[in-house]
Design a protein around this nucleic acid. Sequence first.
DNA 1: CGTACAACCTCTAGTAACTAGAGATGCAAG
DNA 2: CTTGCATCTCTAGTTACTAGAGGTTGTACG
Lengths: 140, 140
Amino acid sequence: MMFFSIGDLAHKTGVKVPTIRFYENIGLLAEPMRTEGGQRRYSADDVARLSFIRHARQLGFEVEDVRELLVLSADPDRPCAEVDGIVYRHLDDVKQKIEKLSALQKELERMVCGSRHGSIGECRVIQVLADHDMCESDVH
Amino acid sequence: MMFFSIGDLAHKTGVKVPTIRFYENIGLLAEPMRTEGGQRRYSADDVARLSFIRHARQLGFEVEDVRELLVLSADPDRPCAEVDGIVYRHLDDVKQKIEKLSALQKELERMVCGSRHGSIGECRVIQVLADHDMCESDVH
DNA sequence: CGTACAACCTCTAGTAACTAGAGATGCAAG
DNA sequence: CTTGCATCTCTAGTTACTAGAGGTTGTACG
């Protein structure tokens, strides 16, 4: 069992079959060998590479970052600075998103707080949406 | 000055001109009057509606939710339950996203923590990416 | 009244990262 | 040899816009 099908690769890595083909299309994965009939055949190296990709994607790295990380990881003698840079940038991005979402959460909770009413005519939510001044202004 | 151009509307609401046309295309905004030459002309009602849309979008509601909120807001006698439903669903969504991002943040910080090394050969980040078991397993 | 020119018009395509589907072919088990 | 699941390629759809091409209108100024 040296080589296996795209379905097997999907199973081993948890990446769906169409996504594997997509990664090949955009050059994240190299074109694999083919059977005479034209079906893809993969090796253990492909499992490692695709697992790396999947893991990086799960950690929220963009595909272009993953591409860069793959290039860097292939070169053991280079300094780590570039890798660190990518990670720190991503981390900042994540923190910013958390900030924004927390502000949203607060505003949404403010909106529905005390929302015991009856009809839309006096619906606080609708009123707030219609009048921006009812929000905490610096949020958005 | 009863009616104004798309540029004026953009200025009054903070929504960009192409976005206004886009909202008209997808039916969020009604087709406005036109000059003889075919240019759009808007009224104060359009400012109110578009401001509502912008505000809802800034609060993270999807366009389809905004559409629904607009329908509901036009009907003052209906109960508020549907509006509340939309808001609570969105709020849950926001909370879930915060959860996920916080987990990511933690994992990323774990990854770079103590990342004083030299070359990619012993780069902790690359190692973690290559080996999922180095992560806290329940996160992803 | 003529003209310059910013603002407007429509339409298409591009973004991110896949996912779904159509229609055709391969492969392996019984 | 047949059955049927897996695979193949290719196109289009998702979200919410944004960018650009190529052409027209409105208005302010002289």
